[in-house]
Computed example of a mutant assay.
Amino acid sequence: MDLTGKTSLVTGAAGGIGLATARLLARTGAFVVATDVDERGLAALAAELGASVTTVTGDVSSPDDVRRMVGAAVTERGRLDIAVANAGIIPLSTVVETSPEDWDRVMAVDGRGMFLTCKYAIEIMLGHGGGAIVCVSSISGVAGQHGQAAYGPAKFVATGLTKHLAVEWAAHGIRVNAVAPGTIRTARVKELGDEPGGREYLATMAAAHPLGRLGEPEEVAEAIVFLASPAASFITGAVLPVDGGYLAR
């Protein structure tokens, strides 16, 4: 997957799947606009990738911030070829435990943020003949799970956007796909082991994946970069499980 000369945007790039994706895009030759609310994490990424990356600190739920993120690609390279809508938060709570404020916060980042990233990326891509968007959904955006009353529905937004936008913009050379990761060993997931009931939850989730383990961020990044690359030129509207067989049960 040679992406030399391509300009990419990765939201939520300071850690987890976003960080792994930014690294892989840079390794395959793409220039990366890396964005996050975590300024310190972005600084570490910039030090690691050097001239292959520029960083933008911002909140994907803010239209002005997302316009700045997309605008950075145009400023730096004059175009945007790849957008990875990854930024999100992952609360674990039942509908009884979830407050209206919790719901609004998750929908603002995971739902509205996904919408804004796609919207402003497409506006730029239309000006130079197309591009590829990859939304990061989840197994929770395809099937129901316990304790994800806000997060799961927000990830259904990612899945729905993928399918509708793929149809809407295919004629303009814009492909829109998604990955649906299973439980991935991000920093947040690793922290669960130190929380009450966290070890039991992680053991249960590992057993629920037929491969018998949790996934790694780099494994999801490989799927994202494949979908964004010319190797996937006849794929659009797909939601690719990267889940160790979870959804196949």
Rank of each mutant, 00 (worst) to 15 (best):
R68A: 14
S140W: 08
P217E: 09
T57H: 02
D243W: 12
C135R: 00
V225N: 03
Y151D: 00
G212M: 08
V70G: 09
G182E: 04
A143K: 13
L42W: 06
G78M: 04
G113M: 03
D59S: 14
V225K: 14
D36Q: 10
C135A: 06
A238Y: 10
G15L: 11
G237Y: 09
C118K: 00
P100T: 14
V136H: 07
A150F: 05
L240M: 13
P241T: 05
F31A: 06
G193S: 11
P217F: 04
M1H: 03
A46Y: 04
I89A: 08
A238R: 02
S61C: 09
K190I: 07
T28G: 05
G244W: 08
A87H: 13
A51P: 12
A46T: 14
D65K: 03
T204P: 05
A13Q: 12
R27M: 09
S93A: 15
T204Y: 13
V157N: 00
A221M: 10
I17C: 03
G50M: 08
E219H: 06
S233E: 14
T35R: 10
A232Q: 07
G88W: 14
A158P: 01
D64A: 15
V189G: 13
K163D: 07
A47K: 12
A232D: 01
R199K: 15
L247I: 03
G212C: 11
T117W: 15
L42S: 02
F115M: 07
M205D: 02
I17G: 00
I122C: 02
A121N: 05
A72E: 13
A170S: 07
A207R: 15
G16K: 05
V220Y: 04
A47V: 15
S62K: 05
V60L: 14
V10S: 06
A149D: 07
Y201K: 03
G198N: 00
E123F: 11
L192R: 13
G152K: 00
V142P: 01
V106T: 03
E216L: 05
A158T: 14
G127Q: 12
A238I: 06
A108V: 11
G41S: 12
D243A: 10
E39I: 04
R105A: 11
D110R: 14
G144W: 01
A166D: 01
D104F: 15
L165N: 04
A231V: 00
A51L: 15
A206C: 02
E168P: 13
F234K: 01
G182C: 00
T35W: 10
G141Q: 05
E222K: 12
A43E: 05
E218T: 14
D64K: 12
T94R: 12
E168Y: 02
A85H: 14
G58M: 02
T35G: 05
H172L: 08
K155G: 06
L240A: 07
K155L: 07
V134K: 11
